[in-house]
């Protein structure tokens, strides 16, 4: 038999959403630089000479901002909406993946965070109606959410299925119970490992490591002997141990909520350097909308003219239906 790939290896997550730390850094730097370039140009169009005074946010600052909004998701999910762990984890992943394709200067993370949650609920079979969603979220209107669905879906390449470490941890939790000397405080170990996994949501761990590696790293951080015993029972390698330590380091160094004051300052600065083409009401935004409308209008006119022509040329009742369906050709009426 041919070696069958593991299910995880066939997933879109494994195929398209794994990166090295260097790749992540380059991607974000490029996004940041690209956004600055476009926005500077837009400022110049609107008001020549104005871009030189703007203090753009840096790639690091973008990341802090996204992280802060990601850190708001658990409370929203668990307390406000009573949604399960995987919906929250999915929303966090959507938010983070979105900013591997976009800059906060183009899309402010607040609504992206909310829409990620709204969509994660749907993709995990626990949809929330928009009215109910908005009744819980203050100062947000329908269009804030619904208009972002497509940009987010596009940025995710319509790949909605996410594999999460907490599921892998649950598997290990069940597994270790058949080992000898199961610790008495297994449930405490488990719930602390869950907390570490939630900390990992704020890091790049999920882009670099597999969900099972992150789960094991969390368990290993709480109870090294238990993790090692489980690894021995599965034939785990030395190499794996090194990986666990790397993951633990990332969680420890990056898995904390950024300082709110600092982020507030970034957010304040962001208001002055947002892409005017994305801010409703700005001259450039109006211009873009008008252009889009003009093109759409032209297309509509063309279509109507073509339809009129077709109508005038052909029998308005179309070809004979019976003949069409019995000779196996496609139905008429195009």
């Amino acid at each position: 038999m041919v070696h069958e790939k593991s299910l995880y290896e066939a997933s879109s997550q494994y195929r398209h959403w794994r990166f090295s730390p260097a790749q992540l850094k380059t991607t974000r730097e490029k996004l940041n630089a690209g956004a600055i370039q476009v926005i500077s140009a837009a400022f110049e169009t609107e008001n020549p000479g104005s871009s030189s005074t703007v203090q753009f946010v840096t790639q690091q600052e973008e990341l802090s901002l996204v992280k802060l909004y990601a850190s708001k998701l658990p409370q929203l999910c668990f307390s406000s909406f009573k949604l399960p762990e995987h919906v929250c984890a999915t929303a966090v992943t959507y938010l983070k993946r979105f900013y591997l394709r976009n800059s906060v200067m183009d899309w402010h993370p607040k609504n992206v965070m909310l829409t990620s949650l709204f969509m994660a609920a749907k993709t995990n079979n626990t949809p929330i109606s928009i009215d109910y969603f908005l009744s819980i979220i203050p100062k947000t209107v329908q269009s804030d959410i619904l208009e972002l669905e497509f940009p987010i879906a596009q940025s995710l390449d319509f790949e909605f299925a996410i594999w999460h470490p907490h599921r892998a941890l649950w598997g290990i939790y069940l597994d270790v119970q058949v080992l000898e000397d199961v610790p008495m405080d297994l449930d405490r170990i488990y719930s602390e490992a869950v907390k570490l996994i939630r900390d990992s949501w704020l890091t790049d761990a999920e882009f670099i490591y597999t969900p099972s590696q992150i789960a094991l790293a969390a368990l290993h951080a709480v109870s090294p002997p238990l993790a090692l015993q489980w690894m021995r029972s599965k034939g785990g390698s030395e190499q794996l141990q090194a990986i666990l330590l790397q993951i633990q380091k990332i969680i420890k160094e990056e898995g904390t909520v950024p300082d709110v004051e600092e982020v507030r300052d970034i957010d304040r600065r962001l208001r002055t350097c947002r892409n005017p083409a994305k801010v409703a009401g700005s001259a450039i935004y109006q211009q873009k909308k008008a252009e889009e409308e003009r093109i759409a209008d032209e297309k509509r006119k063309l279509k109507a003219a073509a339809a009129k022509k077709a109508f005038e040329e052909a029998d308005p009742f179309g070809a004979d239906l019976r003949r069409e369906s019995s000779n196996g050709s496609t139905p008429p009426g195009k």
């Binding site: 929330i128 009215d131 109910y132």
Partner: peptide, 12 residues
């Protein structure tokens, strides 16, 4: 159905 939602009051 967009059912299976514990939350949404008006299920569509």
């Amino acid at each position: 159905k967009s059912a299976e939602a514990p939350d949404g009051p008006d299920r569509r």
